[in-house]
Design a protein around this nucleic acid. Structure first.
Length: 220
DNA sequence: GGTACGATTGTCT
DNA sequence: GACAATCGTACCT
């Protein structure tokens, strides 16, 4: 197994961290077992400087983890239904984060399938962790994991460096594609801050931001 | 104290 | 391709 990524590694601009997370492994350990997946798709959020970030409007109870130390989880619930997981990045004060959008389960497949059935999501193994909410289900990450330190090698959630092929240790970095973030509208819509491994079947489909219905006037 | 809205997904047409 | 589900949060009055 490769080495865990440390706090200093996460203490960088999310735009630098995000592409380097591709191919890295994230392992969650719980009472019922552990699941490891290889990260295949991420999005960078630049906190206070990013209109699409939850941190754009300042620190609140919900996004407090993003303003804390790098190398921790920021977990939030979306639409009251789905749970999504981010890795907090430095520098402190920027409140940057990288959203884990998709991955390929490499270990603990049976447990991941069981969680999928329990949550009633996804039908095939490729879909197990395709999309941020399904990824969180497969890993068993829930709201209570908010703030978990992923740089502790003995912790419940650990992120490890991508494996370097022994046969070609000097080979070029894996092919990475770049594009606009999914479901992001407004000023941040066109920023190419989504990264994924070329040709990965586990990468989620791009959807533009959902069109908002005509906004009704706010109380006469 | 009230209300609009979302870093999504599954289902239906 | 369109839309409902569903609830906490943020922002307004």
């Amino acid at each position: 197994m490769t080495e865990p990524l440390d706090r200093a590694w996460f203490d960088r601009d999310p735009l630098d961290v995000a592409p380097e997370l591709l191919g890295a492994f994230i392992t969650t350990s719980a009472d019922d077992g552990s699941v490891t997946l290889r990260i295949t798709e991420v999005e960078a959020y630049r906190g206070a400087q990013d209109p699409a970030s939850h941190a754009f409007r300042g620190r609140t109870a919900r996004n407090a983890a993003m303003f804390g130390a790098p190398g921790r989880l920021y977990v939030y619930r979306h639409l009251g239904l789905h749970t999504c997981a981010n890795l907090v990045c430095g520098p402190v004060g920027l409140a940057g984060a990288v959203l884990l959008r998709a991955g390929e389960v490499t270990d603990g497949l049976a447990l991941a399938r069981e969680r999928r059935l329990r949550a009633g999501v996804a039908r095939t193994d490729v879909e197990l962790a395709r999309g941020p909410a399904r990824l969180a289900v497969a890993l068993g990450i829930e709201l209570g994991a908010d703030g978990t330190d992923v740089t502790d090698p003995g912790g419940a959630v650990v992120v490890r460096r991508a494996a370097v092929p022994a046969a070609a240790p000097t080979a070029a970095a894996p092919a990475i594609d770049v594009g606009p973030r999914v479901g992001v509208g407004g000023d941040g819509a066109l920023l190419p801050w989504r990264f994924w491994l070329s040709g990965e079947p586990t990468v989620s489909a791009y959807r533009p931001a959902q069109r908002r219905p005509v906004r009704t006037a706010r109380r006469p």
